[in-house]
Each structure stands twice: as structure tokens, then as C-alpha cells.
Simulated scan of single mutants.
Amino acid sequence: MSQQVAIRNSARIPRLSRFGWLMGLYAENHQRLIRLFEPGGLAPGRYLSRNGDGLDVHLDVIEQHRYTTELRLSYAMRDPVTGEPDPSAWLRLYRDARQVEATHCYVGRRWQDVIGLYPPPAEVVDHRMRMNTFLGKWLQYLAERGHGVATLSLDSAPAQDRAPLPSA
């Protein structure tokens, strides 16, 4: 009898598609990023978050548009082979939709090296889910370590000591 009730009740619970799950990740990441750095009001430039643990965080505000903000989040560490910040995540903040999408992540390898140049759509969704899950965990970790608006300042390092701002 209880098994029939469980089957009947589970039929009423809507299932979330993988795409719906991904959109949920985007919304969670929006909340985390807004709480952490409030990037929608920052002028384009490079910002530095220092909390004293030796793992400084760079937040590059690449472009501010009417409804979106283009960002890159990275540690102040470089991949010894490529010279790229590692790890880093390229983000698109959608202010009107209240979502943040990790469009590219660099954790030792580029997306093309991971899934190829012409992956099937299901593989693209899988990859986006992994990138945005990584972003959510990273943002949560940064908040737990004390990074945030209070630790964020415009990077005042001389231009020759900084890597160039990424191009959009």
C-alpha cells in the first residue's frame, strides 16, 4: 500500500530537466557573486581582493553593458606553461535575468581540449554544468575565506607588473 502511495506522489513531483538544472545553477551563482563582489556597479578595470591568506583574487571587469557585465575571476597565480591565470573563469552577469554564466573556465586546459571543437549538444550542456558547478563552489569558498566587497580594491600595481586585461 505504501509503495502505491509513493509511486502516486512521485508522479506529481515535476522533474527538472538538465537545462532547467543549469538555469538554476546560473541563478545560484548570480546570488553568490552579487553577495560577494557586487560587480554590477564596478567600472571596467582590474580589482584585487586580499584577505591575508596569500591567495589574492583578481576580478577583471572587462565590459559593462546595459543588461550584462563581462568579467574574469582568477587567482593571482599563473600557469607555468601558458602564463594564463590558473584557475580562472570568464563570467557573463545578466542583471535583468539575475543569472551568472561561466562561459569559459581555465583549469589547466581549454574547453576545446576537453570536449573538442564540434561536440554534440548533450556534451556541451554537461560541460557547462561542470563549469558552473565549479564556479558555484569557488564563489562559496571565496566567501568562506573572507573575500568580498570589503577586501576588494582597484589593482594599483604598475601596468608593467600586471598581465594585460583580457580582451572581450
Rank of each mutant, 00 (worst) to 15 (best):
M129N: 05
R32Y: 05
V61S: 02
R110E: 06
L22Y: 10
A168Q: 08
G146Y: 02
I62N: 03
G52D: 07
P164S: 09
H104N: 14
L25H: 04
N29P: 05
S17A: 10
A43C: 01
I62Q: 10
Q99H: 07
E28G: 07
I34Y: 00
Q3M: 10
L135H: 05
M131N: 13
R145I: 04
Y26I: 06
P44Y: 04
R15C: 03
L165S: 10
P87A: 06
W138A: 01
Y47F: 08
L93M: 11
Y47W: 13
T133Y: 03
P158G: 05
R12C: 00
T82K: 13
A159R: 12
A76W: 02
S2T: 13
E28V: 07
V124K: 10
L93Y: 07
D56L: 04
H104C: 06
M23R: 15
L33S: 00
E84N: 11
A6I: 14
L25Y: 03
F19G: 09
L142R: 01
M129I: 15
K137P: 00
D60R: 12
A143F: 00
T68V: 11
A11P: 01
V125H: 03
S156E: 15
S2N: 12
R92T: 13
R162V: 05
D53L: 08
Y47D: 04
R50Q: 14
R130W: 06
R66N: 11
P85S: 13
P87S: 09
R128K: 13
P164L: 07
N51L: 01
H65D: 06
F134H: 14
A89G: 12
N29R: 12
D53W: 01
G148R: 00
D155L: 02
R128P: 00
S10R: 15
S167T: 14
Y118M: 11
A97H: 09
L142V: 06
R50W: 03
T133A: 11
I13M: 09
N29K: 15
W90N: 15
M77I: 13
V100P: 00
L59N: 11
H58A: 09
T133G: 11
S2R: 14
L71I: 07
L59R: 09
V107A: 11
M23H: 08
G24K: 09
P121S: 12
V81I: 15
L48M: 12
R128S: 14
G45K: 10
R162I: 01
Q64E: 02
G52R: 05
R162C: 08
R95A: 09
G108W: 09
R50S: 13
S156Y: 03
S49G: 08
A159G: 01
